[in-house]
């Protein structure tokens, strides 16, 4: 496996920690954007050149690195929130849980019945770690916007896993997944705006009041 890709994957995992450890939403958004850009570069590094690849890379960088972050940044400026005030679990504990989950990801990856070509690659543990980090963010954060970030990290994890199979993945499927994501983010952004306008808070734990 080429080392540049390995270093980038390590960077992806470090960004997970950055997203877990920061309280500032803008920093978290930028971190996830950077993660998206790195993920966009990765396919070019690991697969041989083809126009299909270039299309995917450009699309990914545009979507994950520019479009989605700008949408989210817009949302937080409109809703006038800059930081996640009170997460359910503090930052240092979530960091530690994140570290444990990453370690577990490595353990799981070693046990997975993978194709021999894929065994021992950094992709698999990194993908699982990113996935778990996304879950952790979704579970521990209160603000809807942080949950969107968690969702993005989760998606990045899935994408990382899919990277192993990029050659087999038709462009349309890829584009479809991205489109899904963007629509999802749009909807979330609109909902966040609406909620914050109506309730002057986007604390999802208060949404439980709507259950009746």
């Amino acid at each position: 496996m080429n080392t540049v890709a390995d270093q980038l994957i390590v960077l992806v995992m470090l960004i997970n920690f950055a997203a877990l450890g920061t309280g500032r939403l803008a920093v978290a958004i930028r971190a996830v954007a950077l993660q998206g850009v790195i993920l966009g570069i990765l396919p070019v590094l690991i697969h041989s050149f083809s126009w299909h690849l270039v299309a995917i890379t450009v699309g990914l960088i545009l979507a994950k690195g520019i479009l989605i972050p700008s949408l989210l940044t817009g949302a937080i400026t409109k809703a006038r929130i800059t930081r996640e005030m009170e997460p359910f679990i503090g930052y240092v504990p979530t960091l530690l849980i994140g570290a444990v989950l990453t370690a577990l990801a490595f353990a799981f990856a070693a046990k997975l019945p993978l194709a021999p070509a894929h065994q021992g690659l950094l992709f698999v543990p990194a993908a699982i770690a990113t996935l778990l980090t996304g879950f952790l963010l979704l579970v521990t954060r209160r603000k809807a916007i942080s949950q969107v970030i968690g969702y993005l990290v989760l998606e990045n994890g899935i994408f990382l896993f899919g990277l192993l199979l990029t050659e087999a993945m038709p462009v349309m499927v890829e584009a479809g997944a991205l489109l899904d994501l963007i629509v999802g983010i749009f909807v979330m952004g609109i909902i966040i705006n609406q909620i914050s306008r109506e309730f002057s808070s986007i604390d999802t734990s208060r949404l439980t009041a709507l259950k009746e």
């Binding site: 390590v10 995992m13 470090l14 920690f17 450890g21 930052y91 240092v92 960091l95 530690l96 994140g98 570290a99 990453t102 370690a103 490595f106 021992g120 950094l122 543990p125």
Partner: peptide, 21 residues
């Protein structure tokens, strides 16, 4: 400061994870 130190621990732990892999 404790957050930064926890980050330092995690960096080093992560490094260990990479070499043990």
């Amino acid at each position: 400061v404790p957050q930064m130190l926890a980050a330092a621990c995690i960096l080093a732990a992560f490094s260990l994870l990479l070499v043990l892999r």
